[in-house]
Design a protein around this nucleic acid. Sequence first.
DNA 1: TCGGTTGTTTTGACTAAATCAAAACAACCG
DNA 2: CGGTTGTTTTGATTTAGTCAAAACAACCGA
Lengths: 154, 154
Amino acid sequence: MAFTTDSPPDADLLRQSIRDSGLKVTAPRVAVLEVLRQNPHSSAEQISAKVQDALSGSSTQAVYGILAAFTGAGLVRRFDPPGSAALFECRVGDNHHHLLCMQCGAVKDVDCVIGQAPCLTPSDSGGFTVLAAEVTFNGLCQQCRVETVAVPIT
Amino acid sequence: MAFTTDSPPDADLLRQSIRDSGLKVTAPRVAVLEVLRQNPHSSAEQISAKVQDALSGSSTQAVYGILAAFTGAGLVRRFDPPGSAALFECRVGDNHHHLLCMQCGAVKDVDCVIGQAPCLTPSDSGGFTVLAAEVTFNGLCQQCRVETVAVPIT
DNA sequence: TCGGTTGTTTTGACTAAATCAAAACAACCG
DNA sequence: CGGTTGTTTTGATTTAGTCAAAACAACCGA
């Protein structure tokens, strides 16, 4: 019967964390969070595809709504790579940063740069109230660097 | 007025910088660069509108192409605010960062945080070759903060 | 355990941002 | 001044995401 909300060991923890954020616990929400646990840095489309795998009859729009609710509640974090769809991850609250491969789009987490806060304080905030800093390191992942060096001519 | 490609004092400098980047000098290109000089942090649409003002009969697609060519040549820098259109500016090569108002979308430049490089070196680059760091400070501009405080209830 | 309230999900249409391809065109070199 | 090469236009297409209203399900309290 397709194991609608098939319970891996810690499904209850997921349900709990959803409830703790003041949101209602529903099958699609649990599924989204589960997918996100296993595939960090996924786009809404990717998540939607995986959710539909597990939970047939769930719409992409629902996933958009769920992700919006989760980010609002601080359960997931949204990361907008330039030039492609937004990515989501459930590692939150540790203000980590991202390494982004400019070639293949691969994303890797990095812990906050120099210990903690230095990157969070602009030298002159010119009237702005700074609430958070988003740091993205653009570069090449190991594989793409090899390929780029190997094929320098287009 | 209409001042099609009306030459302000330094129009030649713009033409020169375009040529120096190995690109052909055309009216729309000069116009884009000029608009960008006067309005940093403009979106492609905004630039296109202003360019069409000055240079009637120029398409939005041309502006997209021009901006792609310019960013590729390092003449302009592209900044992708989460959730809205990409912005462009011609301040390049000084690795400055951005303050972004989460409410109204206003953007302000900030010079590199602690002097120069610290924010540019992730603690563990895990196989990545880091080429550049993009730092965005999310917050509220002065005006939006006042309004938000004044109207806390929806 | 059952119903009512409230919040969630679905459905389907719609918008904004950007990309692509091919033909018309203009800049630059000699 | 003419040819080559790169640029721009035109128009269609894609991708990412939003909106609104109706159908539905979770949760609280009786």
